[in-house]
């Protein structure tokens, strides 16, 4: 396997790795807040569970980008293409938006989720509104996902 292919695989790995780390941290923080609320009011379980899970989507997006990139490289089918260094770098940079925006947005979304869980703890009737605040952060993860998909698809085979 050449350096080009290694760089491309590194790009795919970064997308799954960093976005996954961000989501793991985010869902973990949300879980602590959710557990705090459910300790005193188990009836709010379903509401806080949804808020806890919101920062988990970045990990899924990272995984998706990794799959697309690895498929395009032929690694999923067991016939990896020999890529030039230039093409490998293109894959690496194409995966970068999802990797870094995924990491940061999941951690920031967790903060919004934790605050929203606090809101639901005090005002359960505001659950709908409380979902919107962390959901706004999702916009940027989706934009990064789109850019990464478009960039990967644009790399010459």
């Amino acid at each position: 396997m050449g350096i080009g292919t290694a760089l491309a695989v590194a790009g795919a790995a970064c997308a799954a790795l960093f976005a996954g780390i961000g989501s793991a941290i985010g869902v973990g923080r949300g879980g602590q807040a959710a557990a705090g609320v459910v300790t005193d009011d188990p009836n709010k379980f379903s509401q806080v569970l949804i808020l806890q899970l919101l920062p988990g989507t970045q990990g899924i997006y990272g995984l998706l980008i990794a799959f697309i990139a690895l498929s395009r490289m032929g690694i999923m089918s067991g016939t990896p293409a020999e890529l030039s260094v230039g093409t490998g770098l293109m894959y690496l940079f194409a995966c970068a938006p999802m990797a870094f925006v995924g990491l940061v947005s999941a951690m920031q979304q967790a903060k919004a989720s934790v605050a929203s869980i606090g809101l639901v703890a005090k005002r359960p009737d505001q659950f709908g509104k409380s979902m919107i605040f962390p959901a706004m952060v999702e916009t940027y993860a989706i934009l990064a996902l789109l850019v990464s998909i478009l960039a990967i698809n644009g790399i010459p085979a």
């Binding site: 923080r29 602590q32 807040a33 959710a34 557990a35 705090g36 609320v37 300790t39 005193d40 009011d41 934790v114 869980i117 606090g118 703890a121 005090k122």
Partner: peptide, 10 residues
């Protein structure tokens, strides 16, 4: 985070 969530309820 856990502590503040419990405080919010209390």
């Amino acid at each position: 985070i856990y502590a503040v969530a419990r405080v919010r309820h209390h």
